[in-house]
């Protein structure tokens, strides 16, 4: 490995009810990579992120962020959930949602002030949404909502970013805008982990990739491991057999 390890996952197993969703995952994500997690529907991509972030309790395994448990390293980690996971008719504005990114560093009870507002406005500008700051969030398009979520994570000023399908349902312009921001984050030495669906764009967007289908199929630099062999192993017709093993 070229760098320090940002995220270290050992023996992670997750199950809803009886069927395992993730089976014995070992994964080391080096610092400073822009990594895609790819795999078919139901492969456990979102679950992997959620169990790293302690949203879902795994049956077994451990997750370390820079050698310490996640609970002690929350401030280093930012999360962009799937856009569809919230109700966009909630009575609030774009700026308000981005401000939520500062709540973690504020802690309990303390109110956001001018400093937090300034940070939120800067993040809105970065994603090109400053003009929409007072807009009720239901009146934003899907792509704009995704940018708001991205801005909220940027405000957290973290070292590691987990993003769950940030390109889902956005147009080509927004996709380019988002990937440019992600590449900037990598340039600044941050680690970015993205659940991704469009295999076509993996070599163009990412430098690191993890193939996932309940079990980890492969992980490494895109130029070394993004090949037919791994794609077939992940998406191929034999995948049911490999689940049962």
């Amino acid at each position: 490995m070229k760098n320090k390890i940002a995220v270290q996952i050992d023996d992670l197993t997750v199950a809803y009810n009886y069927k395992p969703v993730l089976w014995d995952i070992d994964l080391a994500i080096p610092e400073g990579v822009l990594m895609a997690i790819v795999g078919p529907n139901g492969a456990g991509k979102s679950t992997l992120i959620k169990s790293v972030l302690d949203i879902i309790k795994p049956i077994a395994g451990s997750v370390k962020i820079y050698d310490k448990p996640y609970r002690k390293q929350r401030s280093l980690v930012a999360y962009v959930p799937q856009k569809g996971s919230v109700d966009w008719d909630f009575p609030t504005t774009a700026l308000d949602v981005v401000m939520m990114g500062t709540y973690g560093s504020l802690g309990w009870i303390k109110r956001p002030g001018q400093k937090q507002k300034k940070e939120a406005l800067e993040a809105l500008e970065k994603v090109g949404m400053l003009a929409f700051k007072s807009r009720q969030i239901s009146q934003l398009s899907g792509g704009q909502q995704q940018r708001i979520f991205l801005a909220r994570a940027l405000v957290q000023n973290a070292s590691i970013y987990f993003m769950d399908e940030p390109f889902q349902g956005v147009d080509a312009t927004t996709e380019k805008a988002i990937i440019n921001i992600l590449k900037e984050l990598r340039k600044a030495g941050k680690t970015v982990i993205v659940v991704h669906h469009d295999l076509q764009t993996v070599p163009e967007y990412f430098d690191w990739v993890t193939f996932l289908n309940v079990k980890k199929i492969a992980t490494g630099p895109v130029k070394d491991i993004f090949n037919d062999d791994n794609l077939t192993k992940t998406y191929g017709i034999n995948y049911k057999v490999s689940v049962q093993q």
Partner: peptide
């Protein structure tokens, strides 16, 4: 608004 996200903030 977003309970999963709230959880990640601690």
């Amino acid at each position: 608004f977003d309970s999963d996200y709230t959880k990640t903030l601690g």
